[in-house]
Design a protein around this nucleic acid. Structure first.
Lengths: 148, 148
DNA sequence: TGTGAAATAATACAGTA
DNA sequence: TACTGTATTATTTCACA
């Protein structure tokens, strides 16, 4: 079910776009040995079948004054549904990403804030959410993300 | 201190590119009320000063057969440097991102794998890294990421 | 999938405030 | 310094072989 339809050329195109999402079709075409039109059709198809969900810019948030990053582990009462957890974190603008997990913390939330006072406010806000029974915060000291 | 030089137009451009990193300058120009050339120069400048670090494609890894996502918390011996931690995780291709943290786990690692057996192998590999004293794995059930 | 032509977009540059 | 408008080049897009 998951694929069957993605070949090595598609994977190569995904790699190229992961490195630089604004690469032109004409630049990628010789890399995969196809015509420009064929490359465009492949990328269009990858979007159509949902393998490519979008393109985005990568930003150094430090340079924008959002210098602090943390993960907040959340515990919920037993009757809180997974979907509900993701929904409540969505409303908090400082939350960059949220993950519901199996096991001890029920959710892991990635937040980005300007300073420690700001972090305090965000954590307090998360603690007040319905069903939250406890939090544990991991301040990020350094990080690294694959690819670009 | 970190900026001073980024104005509302720049922020608007970053927002537009976060939603769609392949947006054309000609599409963004009317949105911010500037000429195409002015938009290009602004985006070029945002790259030059390091606010924009790159562009990339967003992929639905489930559709590529990498259906399982987890966070692995790592504890290290006291004499392990932060840089060393990030370095060792870098070698493991299944690691999508790594964060060193202040506090109980010393690092948090985001991994993506094909199946549970694969996850087992990756965790075993991480546990064998020099300085690692313990791990705790959080399997991701659901997730959500801001913007696109 | 490739080709080739028309439509768009990116880029470089001259001129203006 | 930062913009606009124009000319040139490159890229995208699409119909058809």
């Amino acid at each position: 079910m998951p694929l069957n339809e993605i070949d090595d050329v598609d994977r190569k195109l995904l790699d190229l776009l992961r490195e630089d999402g604004r690469r032109s079709f004409s630049e990628m075409a010789p890399e995969v040995g196809l015509s420009v039109a064929a490359v465009k059709r492949r990328v269009d198809r990858l979007r159509d079948i949902g393998v490519i969900t979008g393109f985005t810019v990568q930003i150094d948030h430090t340079k924008l004054g959002w210098g602090i990053e943390a993960f907040v582990e959340l515990s919920y009462t037993g009757n809180t549904a997974v979907g509900e957890i993701l929904g409540t974190t969505h409303k908090v603008p400082e939350v960059q990403a949220a993950f519901t997990t199996a096991g001890d913390p029920d959710a892991l939330v990635h937040v980005r804030v300007r300073d420690i006072a700001h972090l305090q406010k965000v954590i307090d806000g998360l603690r007040r959410e319905r069903g939250v029974t406890g939090t544990k915060t991991l301040m990020v000291l350094g990080s690294w993300t694959r690819s670009a």
